[in-house]
């Protein structure tokens, strides 16, 4: 059987909220090491890769690898009934035809339990090779969210270029062009405000702002976001979850003429 207890159930709720608009029916793969998800959106333009280590849980038991097929919008509805400070317990028999979710509130002593029917989901898995990216940028996730939101006003494509000048986000549309240039900033005493840019060679790629906007739903998970780019490759946008895991988004670029 599979049983996992997460004292800060809110982490799991935030993970569901960060991906449920991009991928609807997903398999949560349970192994002795971690809970993970790898799923593409229906257009095969974006890929979500989530991992939450067994070390994030106070109790984690996984007798044999399981795949829990879930409809994320339904899971999200159930999480609306979880209190902010609740402990979350997930439980499934090896037959895995249903998933038990329990929310325990120590203060009030209430326990809510829900049972979700599991689905058999045939999802195409992709082999994403480990890549040494030419540019790797770490920046405040709230800053990235603001840039994406602001540039959506200008157009629906964002050109992201990393040069020795810094990291530039540009969007052009009917009303004109907008550019936001971020420079390396490691001066501020708050680590979370740092912008670090490691550039091995300049990279310039174009992406659909609609997808970048979906990805910023993961902002509550992490104060920083890491962007990795190489010429002619999908961008990787990573939200680390402390030392416990991550939500990574891979986005295919738009093609230059």
């Amino acid at each position: 059987m599979f049983e996992a207890r997460l004292a800060n159930g809110n982490i799991f709720k935030m993970i569901v909220e960060s991906i449920r608009e991009l991928v609807v029916d997903v398999n949560i793969d349970c192994s002795t090491e971690e809970l993970s998800i790898q799923c593409m959106d229906s257009a095969h333009v974006a890929l979500v890769s989530m991992s939450l280590s067994q070390s994030a849980f106070d109790h984690f038991r996984c007798d044999r690898s399981l795949s829990l097929g879930l409809n994320l919008p339904n899971v999200s509805k159930i999480f609306k009934m979880m209190g902010r400070d609740d402990t979350m317990v997930l439980k499934a028999e090896d037959s895995a035809d249903k998933l038990m979710l329990m929310f325990e509130n120590d203060k009030s002593g209430t326990i809510a339990d829900f049972e979700l029917k599991l689905m058999a989901i045939e999802a195409e898995q992709l082999g994403v090779p480990d890549t040494a990216y030419k540019c790797s940028i770490s920046m405040p996730s709230s800053e990235f969210q603001r840039i994406v939101r602001d540039l959506q006003v200008m157009g629906d494509t964002c050109k992201i270029s990393c040069t020795k000048e810094g990291l530039k986000f540009s969007a052009t549309g009917q009303i004109g062009t907008g550019n936001i240039l971020m420079r390396q900033n490691v001066a501020s005493e708050k680590e979370e405000d740092h912008v670090t840019i490691d550039m091995e060679e300049p990279v310039e790629l174009n992406f659909a702002l609609r997808y970048l906007n979906f990805f910023t739903k993961a902002t509550p998970l992490s104060p920083t976001v890491i962007l990795k780019m190489s010429p002619g490759l999908p961008i990787v946008i990573e939200y680390p979850i402390e030392q416990l895991g991550h939500v990574k988004y891979y986005l295919a670029p738009k093609m230059e003429e």
């Binding site: 593409m40 257009a43 095969h44 333009v45 974006a46 890929l47 195409e124 898995q125 992709l126 082999g127 994403v128 090779p129 629906d156 494509t157 174009n206 659909a208 490759l233 999908p234 891979y250 295919a252 670029p253 738009k254 093609m255 230059e256 003429e257």
Partner: peptide, 14 residues
């Protein structure tokens, strides 16, 4: 607007 590429052009299915 620029044409959108697909992930399957970069990563192969497993």
């Amino acid at each position: 607007d620029l044409p959108q590429s697909c992930l399957l052009a970069y990563y192969e299915s497993r």
